[in-house]
């Protein structure tokens, strides 16, 4: 049976369930808008570890273990783990998974990794290749800063277009059977490079990728934006969100009524993060902490989550390359 729909979308024949989600968040996120939805909030970004990288690994592993516990399964019940983070060679993820002794696939899609892992997990389950899958992503403000930007103690000003990398980890347990919201469809994104070179302007650089994936999703599945109660993007920030609405309007789809960006859901304005949140954990905390729970509560029945990633590196930026971006979308319905 053919499950591919249109040019780049998938409609699942037996949509997998999201049994449970779990989150670990940093202190600043704990004081943010969704502070009371996280399972664990750390008192600082290092939590007694020797390095920020170790702390990020700890968060990722704790998120997986908490999600498993909430789903009433044990780690050996998990068939595969799909996970990723922002660091070179997926450092945080690999050290977090070490010792769990489960089959593992590491994923890198920058900040789009959360949707990437959800959709690949759903593909594996719908294909009948397993029963239970754990997915997880993480990011930590300071590990990202020192890799992508400047040392954290350097006295520089962040430009107003810049976004704040979220400290946190989110995990979800997917299952072929059970109950909960189901992943019904997905759209795999293309790499879109509109030529933006300023690494601070990730939201505006990613907006065309988000608009392209959302457009393809609507075109491929024949659905209108109004089909969904809410449409979310991962971490476009204030300016990126506005540009995405405009770009989609030009292609004939109006999402302005039921659309929010996860990057604007994490922090309060007075937390001085400028254009919003970014990082793998932006969409992961918003979804695992808030959106999933609201779906269970019945507030939303159908949502579309499009996580966006800017695929540049410090090397590509220094070589004066523009920023290639990607967005993957998953439709979740209960």
């Amino acid at each position: 049976m053919k499950k591919k729909t249109g040019k780049q979308s998938i409609c699942f024949a037996s949509p997998p369930y999201i049994l449970e989600t779990a989150t670990v968040a940093g202190p600043m996120e704990g004081e943010g808008k969704l502070g009371d939805t996280y399972d664990k909030i750390l008192e600082d970004n290092i939590h007694g570890h020797e390095s920020w990288e170790q702390c990020e690994s700890f968060m990722l592993r704790t998120a997986i273990e908490t999600a498993a516990k909430k789903s009433k399964i044990t780690i050996p019940d998990i068939d595969y783990i799909l996970a990723g983070d922002l660091l070179n060679q997926l450092m945080s993820t690999h050290f977090a998974i070490r010792g769990l002794e489960r089959p593992f696939l590491g994923l890198y899609g920058a900040c789009s990794t959360f949707a990437e892992s959800l959709l690949l997990g759903a593909v594996l389950l719908d294909g009948g290749f397993g029963e239970t899958i754990a997915i997880a992503v993480s990011s930590l403000h300071d590990t990202a800063e020192r890799q992508y930007r400047f040392p954290t103690e350097l006295g520089v000003q962040r430009p107003p277009i810049s976004q704040w990398t979220v400290t946190g980890a989110g995990s979800a347990i997917l299952s072929a059977n059970g109950q909960g919201p189901r992943i019904t469809a997905a759209t795999i994104g293309k790499v879109v490079d509109i030529g933006i070179k300023d690494p601070n302007a990730m939201g505006p650089a990613m907006a065309p990728a988000a608009a392209d994936t959302l457009y393809c999703h609507f075109a491929d599945t024949g659905k209108q934006p109004a089909y969904y109660d809410m449409i979310f993007t991962g971490d476009l920030g204030a300016i990126g969100k506005q540009l995405t609405i405009e770009l989609l309007q030009e292609k004939g789809y109006d999402i302005s009524g039921n659309y929010e960006d996860c990057g604007l859901m994490i922090y309060f304005d007075q937390q001085d993060v400028h254009s919003g949140a970014s990082g793998c954990a932006s969409s992961a905390l918003a979804f695992c902490g808030h959106i999933y729970k609201e779906m269970r509560r019945g507030r939303w029945k159908r949502i579309l989550l499009a996580c966006t990633g800017s695929l540049h590196s410090p090397v590509s930026y220094q070589q004066k390359e523009s920023i290639p971006c990607i967005a993957h979308a998953v439709a979740i319905e209960s």
Partner: peptide, 18 residues
């Protein structure tokens, strides 16, 4: 993506850039 389109987007971004 055509150069023209990239240029247009850059201009559009410059207008809304805080």
């Amino acid at each position: 993506i055509k150069e023209k389109e990239k240029q247009n987007y850059q201009e559009r971004f410059n207008q809304v850039k805080p």
